[in-house]
Amino acid sequence: MMSETILKAVNVSKIYGKSKALDKVSLEIKRGMIYGLIGENGAGKSTFMRTVMGLITVDEGNIELFGETGIKGLQKGRRRMGQSIETPALYPDLTARENLRVQAANGGVSDREIDDLLQLMNLGHTGKKKAKNFSLGMRQRLAIASTLITNPEFLILDEPTNGLDPSGIVEMREIIHRLVTERGITVLLSSHLLDELSQVATHYAILHDGQLIRELSKEELARETRQYIELETTEVQKAVAVLDELGIKDYEVISGSKIHIYESLDDVSSINRSLVLANLKVSRIGTTRQKLEDYFLQLTGGTSDA
């Protein structure tokens, strides 16, 4: 049940000189969500996360954590959170176990869970190896283990798959899923790749130039980037008549030569036959999906050729 509000940001702004790193960003994250922040580099993702973590001050607006506001309230709320922002923040000369002991001490919690966490993150074998000798994937996993030592209810991960190889990305995705399903953690994560986020997140916010330009759920994203039959013909009016005869209602005339059909996706050949029998010149017909990347660029005003 997604009822309790974990994070509520209202009109949060952060100004550096004359530029607004965050411009009146408002969003709400409820318990159980995997909330994905998407935006190009410099869109304001990390800045927003840092304001939530109290690492940078907010110039305008208000942040509420676990229903708490104010300096003391937010400090209390932050004790129920964990974070890994940008590069994994580790002590290079300490082992995985020692890094976790430091974070346990920082959080004022017992270090009894260290062994379990090392196993969970597949770091049980690292022994006396120092963190500086870890691969990037291992460091990312250790950074997440470090955030989990304080048993957070809300986890903030800034570009957790940044720099990882494909197997590392898959592994990280599985870890996030496990944290949500096994530990019931609410997650706020960021990426500049919508395609990557779409495989994990349940909700999305698209940031562009410091502004939140779109907030949508996984279902809404699926609907807006759904699969369709793309039909190209010189006689759109005739084609529409044929589609109506076939009982197809969910379609959209995109231009004078293009129609998108959102139903009967498995009946491309029979639709094509009907169009041909009606003496229509069909230059192209086939199923396609709007790429998430194109969708994102469309929203942010970029171009897919970029």
Partner: peptide
């Protein structure tokens, strides 16, 4: 420089 200062401060430490 290592970013480890975030680990303590983000836990609400004063």
């Amino acid at each position: 420089q290592n970013g480890t200062i975030r680990n303590a401060l983000s836990l609400g430490r004063s």
